[in-house]
Amino acid sequence: MKQFPIKKIVVYLLLSLGAITMVFPYVWMILSSFKTPAEVATTPPTWWPSSFAFTNFVYAFHTAPFGQYFINSLIVTSCVVLLTLTTTILAAFAFSRLKFPGRDILFTGLLALMMVPFEMMIITNYATISKLHLINTIPGLIIPFTSSIFYTYVLRNFFLSIPDSLYWSARIDGASNWQYLWKVMVPIAKPSIITITLLNAILSWNSFLWPLLIANTNSARTLPIGLYAFITEGGVRYERLMAAATIVVIPMIILFLLARKHIISGVAKGGLKG
């Protein structure tokens, strides 16, 4: 199949142009994070920093506890992911495998509830967390996010695709519902579960509005909130701000490079949903 190369050239040219537009903010962020104050404040801009010194990173870590923020983010995300996964697996099993009165009505009701934007729930949830004395604590960032109707819906659909005969075989082999769930269903649903875990981790890591309300002390701040606080504390020194932003962005970039295919296919199948 011979093709006029001009077509290919146009395709690659447009693609590269788009790619540059998409990654430029990151490139510019990282490059700026290595610059000296003088290099930042020049017209025309300096493209390449004179040396890749970590001065700005050191400053960021000294001024604000980014290490602490990182650990907070890690704790919050791991807990949210693990707890959500547990509740999701158990609930998806009940909705797909168990027969009980009111199942379908309950499930329909949950789907209706799924349509309500989270922003609407913030008001009451803040009051609830406040009543539980969990403002400015890590648990306050975690417990409202332990149940996800959306992921339960996704996993239930996957569970439903596992043939009944497998379930009955396991039962005849002597397995209880509980054993069947963990020894057969969950291993089979591994790809689906990985996808849910990744998407949920991304959402939780980058979550902003809720921790902005809840976490106002360094001991509870997650990376995005810590960064946001740094804007005011660190002053408008862009080389420092960019260093801080880089610190926040790097873990997710690494995760994306490692699990790109899973993340992309997960988004393509289910879409991101809070």
Binding site: V23, P224, T246, V248, V249, M252, I263
Partner: peptide, 9 residues
């Protein structure tokens, strides 16, 4: 990439 990185950063 922009799908996974913090909107704040």
């Amino acid at each position: 990439l922009p799908m996974v990185t913090s909107g704040t950063a």
